[in-house]
């Protein structure tokens, strides 16, 4: 469509005609909720911290040479042997909790977003196929979806990991397997509604090829519910990953995610060394809550049934 957007004399558009794009409308409606904006800002800060961790963290918690076992289980605010201040204390291996949380966020967010994107690609394609093809293809895909959704996610993920073994990639695979069904069901639902609308018939009349109708006309109109589900599923994936790691089946012990940090400190909770579990727990909670705040507002703004 480059030719349609390029080369128009600007004078042809009267200055009064400020184009209200669907995107601008969406932004202003989203910003109407202070709480959602707060969630978004919080989430952006968390992402920034995670991305910049190698540069801003006091310590590289994965580099065993930097860890001093003598500094193990120090209270928040203690100064270690090498002169470094542990603002959030240390764990049993002398790892700075603040650095551990920053790096742990990196892993949690990567796993969460990565699995959500992959699950979305798989699920949305299958859902679109089910809606457009109908018949047996539809039945087959939807039976798989039902099967998947009726099985407890954590149990399915545990079984997959028990089979595949630990590792970040394996966790992502397990999460994709347990999450694609949500995307498939969502996309199929909205595609079934959208494909009956007359602009799809018009596109067929114009002899546009099927893949163009699906990806240029149908899919963009199915995106809003998909974005909502996607946001919520990122939060869910992060929580699931934390659970799996907590249970010892997730990421490897050498590169702890938030869930594994919590698990590591769990045994010391009762002996008063709360910080080893507590602060990673807070980080996890804040991350999930901020994503859900954004997701809730997205659902309100993008859900046409709630509008006028």
């Amino acid at each position: 469509m480059s030719t349609t957007t390029a080369g128009a004399p600007p004078a042809a558009v009267p200055p009064a005609a400020r184009v209200e794009t669907p995107f601008r409308r969406f932004v202003s409606e989203f910003a109407a909720s202070r709480l959602a904006l707060f969630g978004l800002v919080l989430f952006c800060i968390i992402v920034l911290v995670a991305v910049l961790a190698p540069w801003i963290a006091p310590q590289n918690p994965y580099d065993l040479a930097q860890l001093d076992i003598m500094d193990g289980r120090l209270e928040p605010g203690s100064v270690g042997g090498s002169g470094i201040t542990y603002w959030l204390g240390t764990d049993d291996q002398g790892r700075d909790m603040l650095s551990g949380i920053m790096y742990g966020l990196r892993i949690s967010l990567t796993v969460g977003a990565g699995s959500a994107i992959l699950a979305c690609l798989v699920g949305a394609s299958l859902g679109m196929l089910a809606a457009y093809a109908g018949g047996r293809t539809d039945s087959l895909i939807m039976r798989l979806v039902d099967l998947q959704l009726s099985f407890p996610a954590i149990l399915a993920a545990l079984m997959i990991l028990a089979f595949l073994g630990k590792g970040i990639l394996n966790v992502v695979i397990a999460l994709v397997v347990v999450e694609w069904a949500y995307y498939a069901r969502t996309v199929r639902g909205s595609a079934l509604v959208e494909r009956r609308r007359e602009y799809i018939e018009a596109a067929q009349c114009l002899a546009l090829p099927t893949h163009r109708i699906i990806f240029r006309h149908l899919l963009p109109n199915c995106l809003p519910p998909l974005i909502v589900v996607g946001t919520m599923q990122v939060a869910r994936a992060i929580a699931l990953e934390a659970t799996l790691s907590f249970l010892g089946l997730g990421v490897p012990i050498t590169e702890p995610s938030l869930g594994l940090l919590i698990a590591n400190g769990y045994e010391y909770m009762l002996s008063g060394k709360y910080w080893i579990s507590f602060y990673p727990g807070i980080a996890l909670l804040v991350t999930i809550v901020s994503i859900n705040l954004v997701g809730d507002q997205l659902r309100d703004v993008l859900n046409p049934r709630l509008k006028k």
Partner: peptide, 12 residues
């Protein structure tokens, strides 16, 4: 074809 519903017949 020209359609009945002027709202549903154009891709929003």
């Amino acid at each position: 074809m020209i359609f009945q519903d002027p709202y549903a017949s154009l891709n929003p």
